[in-house]
């Protein structure tokens, strides 16, 4: 499915998703955690479909339960004692709430990484880091190219070994292991010699003589500039609000901090706008489209 962010410049997308991830790790305030979780879930479902989301969530829920139970089991701080465990250690409401909140944070980080994987494909990643780290980016793209090539080579080696009567699936266990080692060692020699040839060819074509240029399809447009501006502004404002301590919520020794003051609600509103920014853009497109259709 095509999402609106796919026509945006990778830097805009990267800024958005990295800030969403950073903010997800930034505060244990339960409202922020819940907002991050729900908006991340919505966007993940929108980007990658419900199936992928559920498989991430399954993994996330297991972690969530482990964290939520482990924290009150091992942490005995907090004033509100719920009950005593068999070892006479108090199980406190505060430790339990902290466990829920940090478990929720963990799950939402996984969900946001889901969105990251949906938004930043390998092409965009290479584009973003190719300028700063040209050699590393080149090596990465060589790896991406050689993985299927190497896979193919393994099957070629396997087939030829099989036809010699030395297939890895035949013979005793010891023979099998020896044959596997043989295959990897053939693969190593072949790949290494071949890679040197590639290197020589690169050198012959003038690799390293001047700065590397790269083909890219990405251009800055007006919509990129506007979105970049809005996202940066939201990141700064939200960052100030969160790091400035307006959202600090303490669990120990007992719950303290204001969750639903006027200033808090305002901050949550700004946070929602930041996280839901691509979804809002998507909605805007939908409305414009409907209007245009209505007019004609």
């Amino acid at each position: 499915m095509k999402n609106i962010f796919s026509i945006y410049h990778p830097l805009v997308i990267f800024t958005y998703i990295v800030s969403a991830l950073a903010f997800a790790m930034l505060t244990f305030n339960p409202v922020y955690v819940i907002l991050s979780f729900y908006i991340g879930s919505l966007y993940s479902i929108y980007l990658l479909g419900i199936k992928k989301y559920i498989s991430t969530l399954k993994f996330g829920v297991v972690l969530f339960i482990v964290v939520a139970i482990a924290n009150p089991m091992f942490n005995h701080q907090g004033l509100t004692v719920l009950f005593y465990n068999p070892w006479d250690n108090p199980i406190t409401l505060e430790a339990f709430a902290y466990g829920l909140s940090s478990g929720g944070m963990l799950v939402s980080i996984f969900i946001w990484f889901n969105c990251y994987n949906g938004l930043i494909n390998n092409d965009k990643f290479m584009y973003l880091f190719g300028r700063i780290l040209p050699t590393i980016a080149l090596m990465l793209s060589m790896i991406m190219k050689w993985v299927p090539v190497t896979k193919n080579r393994i099957s070629i080696i396997n087939n030829s070994q099989k036809s010699l009567g030395l297939g890895v699936n035949m013979g005793t266990k010891k023979q099998k292991i020896n044959r596997c080692i043989r295959v990897t060692s053939i693969l190593m020699s072949w790949s290494l010699e071949d890679s040197i040839e590639t290197a020589d060819s690169m050198k012959a074509r003038g690799y390293g003589c001047t700065k590397r240029t790269s083909y890219s399809v990405y251009k800055w447009g007006t919509h990129d500039i506007i979105s970049m501006f809005i996202i940066s502004l939201l990141v700064i404002v939200n960052g100030v609000l969160i790091l400035g301590g307006y959202s600090t919520y303490e669990y120990y020794p007992t719950f303290s901090g204001n969750l639903f003051g006027v200033a808090n609600l305002f901050a949550y509103g700004l946070y929602i706008i930041l996280l839901a920014y691509p979804l809002l853009l998507e909605g805007k497109e939908e409305i414009v489209w409907k209007l245009l259709k209505y007019r004609t």
Binding site: I143, M188, S191, S195, I196, A199, D200, K203, G208
Partner: peptide, 14 residues
């Protein structure tokens, strides 16, 4: 040099 980076690429691929 290209010759210095390709062995690392091969090992990373494997």
């Amino acid at each position: 040099k290209p010759r210095d980076i390709v062995p690392l690429v091969v090992l990373s691929v494997i």
